[in-house]
Design a binder for these strands. Structure first.
Length: 273
DNA sequence: TCTCTTGTTCAAAA
DNA sequence: ATTTTGAACAAGAG
């Protein structure tokens, strides 16, 4: 789940629930989830407060009242946050828990242990070191085009590359390509200016739509491809109807591109000849 | 029981 | 040397 829109929702959640409360303790069930030594994490953060948040791509940064002390969070494939009163049971999979002195806890839920939390001293240095490109909501059409044109790989894995544009994951890339009518296996360096503009427009459309609907897939417009994904089905959905292109009713094709499951409309997403 | 998975990394291959 | 590919990571869900 945690692609850019989900991380943005989590950022807003942390921002409204967990700022300006002294940290009394931090529980960590499995230290492999930390990118910073546990004792360093404790001595650095206990007594401090979260003061603000920033997000770039799928990375969430939590600022503190100590200079140059920033908590970095990455949600992997399944990470989530839950703010709850300490008198309640710890939420399932809350393997890292920030305990505030006011009796509330912020749980970092890590069902699959692909998530990571650690300290950094500079967001810019972190982005540089990790080669994180500009965020999908900030990147200009020129910069996106420039970065895509440099690559020869299929456009799908290029858009998944966080050093090209930050925040797009597997389903968003499929959705962006569908909205822009670009085939996932078109070579990146063969995209026309019109296609690059369409990709930039589609990126904004998909990201903004997802954030507006708080990343709840079933609420997305019917014009979106996402409804073909089986994990979107609800008891109210006509599952069969979702296997067809919402525009031309052609059966949606499922394949593997760049090692990832890919859905696309074989009629509308063509490679120009 | 078996397959699949929304992400990233790193080593191998090209 | 650089870019691309693909396995590995861990564990839950269906």
């Amino acid at each position: 789940m945690p692609e850019l829109p989900e991380v943005e929702i989590r950022r807003q959640y942390l921002e409204t629930s967990s700022l300006n409360q002294p940290i009394a303790h931090i529980e960590v069930e499995d230290r492999k989830l930390l990118t910073t030594d546990y004792n360093t994490l404790l001595t650095t953060l206990v007594g401090r407060q979260f003061t603000g948040t920033r997000r770039v791509g799928k990375n969430l940064f939590v600022l503190t009242d100590a200079p140059d002390v920033i908590v970095h969070m990455h949600f992997g494939m399944t990470g989530d946050l839950e703010y709850y009163h300490a008198s309640l049971d710890r939420p399932r999979f809350a393997r890292i828990v920030f305990e505030f002195s006011n009796g509330f806890n912020l749980g970092f839920l890590c069902p699959r242990k692909f998530e990571r939390v650690g300290l950094i001293d500079s967001i810019d240095a972190f982005l540089e070191r990790k080669k994180i490109a500009p965020d999908g909501l900030d990147i200009s059409v020129n910069e996106l085009s420039e970065r895509i044109r440099r690559k020869k790989a299929f456009i799908k894995p290029v858009l998944l590359d966080q050093s090209v544009v930050a925040g797009l994951g597997n389903w968003i890339v499929d959705e962006v390509l569908f909205q822009a009518r670009v085939h996932p296996e078109q070579r990146a360096d063969t995209l026309t200016n019109e296609q690059l503009t369409a990709l930039h427009d589609a990126t904004r459309l998909v990201l903004e739509t997802a954030i507006r609907h708080e990343a709840t897939y079933r609420d997305f417009p019917n014009s979106f491809l996402i409804h073909v994904r089986e994990w979107d089905d609800s008891p109210y959905d006509d599952v069969e109807a979702h296997k067809f292109c919402p525009r031309c009713r052609t059966r949606i094709e499922r394949s593997t591109v760049g090692g990832r499951t890919t859905f696309f409309c074989p009629k509308e997403q063509n490679i120009p000849v």
